[in-house]
Every structure is written in C-alpha cells, then in structure tokens.
Amino acid sequence: MSSNTVPAVLHSEWIKARSTVGSLVTLPLALVISHGLALAGGLSTRNAIDSGSNMLASDFNPINSGFNALLYGNLAFVVFAVLVFSSEYTSGMIRASLAAVPTRGLFYLAKLLVVAAVALIVGGTAVIASFLITQSALGPHGASLSDPGAARAVLGGVAYVVLINVFPAAVAALLRSTALTLGILMPLFFVVGPALGTISGTKPVAQFLPDQAGMRAMQVTADSGELTAGQGILVLLLWTLTAAAVGYWLIRRRDA
C-alpha cells in the first residue's frame, strides 16, 4: 500500500535529476574528462611504445588501459550521484518531497533507480566511448572489441560505473550532507584506495574497498591473490546493497 504510483514517482525524480545545474554541469564534465583523457592516454601510450620507452609498465595490456581515463571522469559522476540525495537535505526540499511522496521507501528507491539509469546511459556511453577512443589512439597497438576478454571487460566497466554511482548516492542519503559525503568518498576513491592498492603490503585488504574491487571488473588478467573480475564486481555490489539497505531502513525511521 503506497501513497503514489511507481511511474509517477520515477517521473518526478527524473524531472528533479534533469533540472538542476548540478547535473547539467557534472554529467557533460564527466564525459569531457573521460573522453579527453582516453584520447590523451592512448596517444601518449602509443608514443611510448613506438619510441621504446622503458617508462611503459611491463604488464601493458591495451584492454586494461582503455579504462584508465574512466577513473577521473568518474569523479564528476560521483558528485552528481551524491548531489541527487544530499541536495534534498541541504536545500530543505526533502520536506516538500516527502509531503508529496510520504511512502518513504518508494521515494528512496525511485531516487536510487534514477541515479542507476543515468549512470547506465551516460556512464555506459562514457565507458564504451573511452574504450574505443583509447584503442583507436593506440593505433596498431590497440585492441578491438572482438579480442578475447574485451567485450566482457567493457561490460564490466558499465556495471562498475553504475554501481560506483549508486553506492555514493546511498551513502549521501545516510549522511544527509554534501560536504561530509564527498569529504569521505573522494579521498577514499581517489587517494586512499589507489594508494593502498599499490602498496604490496596493503593490497590484499585494499582490493576489497568499493572502488578497488569494482575496478577489477575491467581487468582481463588476475594475478594469484587478486580478486577476479566477477568477484570484484560482486564485492562492489555487496557494498552498494549494504549502503542502500541501511539507507532504506533509516529514511523510513528518521524525522525528515
């Protein structure tokens, strides 16, 4: 028994998502960053290979390198996903929203679903386009989608980009603050995770962090002791479901 119909609430949340300056800025920015870096990364890597540079990592794999740019484009996506929830609280809009949709679980899930849909469409496009741009910039060293593991890695990338947006959205709903959420997640995703993931001593543990685990989904190779692509995406899914479940439980109980 709910107060509003599901399509009506989804429609409402879609209008909200498309009508703020935040989304009009962050989403195109995410595309520009990831596509730009994909091109730059591909070109410079090709240059390094052609000139026989010893700066090139010994385990160079064209498929893997097709997703390097995504990490940075993701920064803007995550801001969008966080704002979807946190702006409701910082602006006071949450009271108008819950007065219009008092079935809070419905409101919450509709919002997460809209974040997931936007991430799937915009983020998915970014993943595929970045991959193709990098490969064509690599020229003769590039891989094609028909290479073994390539299509699976791209699909893994799409799954990653969807979950890595839904997870911060759910965390933002828990914390109800833009600054706090970004203050925790940004360093985690872009500093702590990558740093711990590089140090061999902390790597076995760090690979279970949401972003580190999710990024395994785009790798075609896994060393022993490393999460496989499937396991990686499963770990990120678990993080996301946990955050979403806690958020769902809390929004139904808390005073708005």
Partner: peptide, 16 residues
C-alpha cells in the same frame, strides 16, 4: 526554504 536553489520555479512545481 523548501526548494532546490538551482532548480527553476516551474521545474520545482513540475517535479512535485
């Protein structure tokens, strides 16, 4: 103050 500052008045009402 119960409206998102970055949204237009029309879109605010439309979403509700």
């Amino acid at each position: 103050r119960a409206a998102h500052p970055g949204r237009s008045a029309y879109n605010h009402l439309l979403s509700l």
